[in-house]
């Protein structure tokens, strides 16, 4: 397993948002997390790069890095953990004062201190890959939502992470712009990236995932292959949720 998580819990004050979560992901696999709003799926994702620091939980990476959040964890380990993953945000969070190209080069150039020529070449390749070859010198406010999100994906890829995290990457987009972003994510699936995707696009999740987690009330209610969880759910709560999402016409 690339990453194994045991007993992950997260509270905000009295409010327990994640309760004793166990899961693992293998290299090159894609896990989708689905579930209603407030189920804890985004918090779970944000715990994986400690944008939210877990209250409890044992993280074990295959390279030996281990963090036990029930004890005090040291800053260096936190930074190491964070640098393993790239993240794509629901609201893109591009740097508004930097061009598309500068957004992508910022990480490798400033954090990883790599050679500028090499980084620029890499960034141009990535932006071409996400279909923004002729938009590289534009600022975020000159780009559409779908284009901004694709820059966001290129920015996350540029640090060459081991793990890609997507936090509802299409939720802020106009319906007609969703396709262009999902297409890019699908390309990454085909390239064999290890990815965890929080999404409301159930059909997409069914198509690209090796495993689906259905969350509700801070628990993983059901997990397994898309065939099992999405096409043939066992738990009543999963059935009810999928029914609502897949047949939105019925009230």
């Amino acid at each position: 397993m690339y990453l194994t998580i045991k007993g992950l819990a997260k509270s905000f004050g009295e409010n327990e948002v994640l309760k004793n979560i166990d899961f693992a992901i293998d290299k090159g696999k894609v896990i989708s997390i689905i579930g209603p709003s407030g189920s804890g799926k985004t918090t779970l994702l944000r715990c994986l790069n400690t944008l939210e620091q877990p209250s409890k939980g044992l993280f074990t990476f295959e390279d030996g890095l281990t963090l036990d959040f029930s004890k005090k964890v040291n800053k260096q380990d936190l930074l190491k953990l964070r640098r393993k993953s790239g993240m794509v945000f629901q609201s893109y969070n591009l740097f508004p004062h930097k061009t598309a190209l500068e957004n992508v080069t910022e990480g490798p150039l400033i954090v990883q201190r790599r050679n500028k020529k090499e980084v620029t070449k890499l960034a141009k390749e990535l932006l071409t890959k996400v279909g923004l070859k002729d938009k590289m010198d534009l600022y975020p406010n000159q780009l559409s939502g779908g284009q901004q999100q694709r820059v966001g994906i290129a920015r996350a890829l540029a640090i060459q992470p081991e793990l890609m995290l997507f936090d509802e990457p299409t939720s802020a987009l106009d319906p007609e712009l969703i396709g262009e972003v999902l297409r890019v994510i699908k390309d990454l699936v085909n390239e064999g990236w290890t990815m965890i995707i929080v999404t409301h696009e159930i059909q997409f999740a069914a198509q690209v995932s090796d495993e689906v987690l259905f969350m509700d009330g801070g628990y993983i209610v059901e997990q397994g292959s898309p065939d099992k969880v999405i096409r043939n759910p066992q738990e009543p709560r999963t059935k009810q949720f999928l029914d609502r999402i897949l047949n939105p016409g019925e009230y």
Binding site: N49, G86, S91, F95, Q112, I159
Partner: peptide
């Protein structure tokens, strides 16, 4: 400055100081 800007800095591997300075 929106919190998302700090978070974006952190997710590309920046420390708090670097995020403050660059972003």
């Amino acid at each position: 400055i929106p919190k998302g800007q700090w978070e974006a800095g952190y997710t590309i591997g920046m420390t708090r100081t670097t995020t403050l300075r660059r972003i």
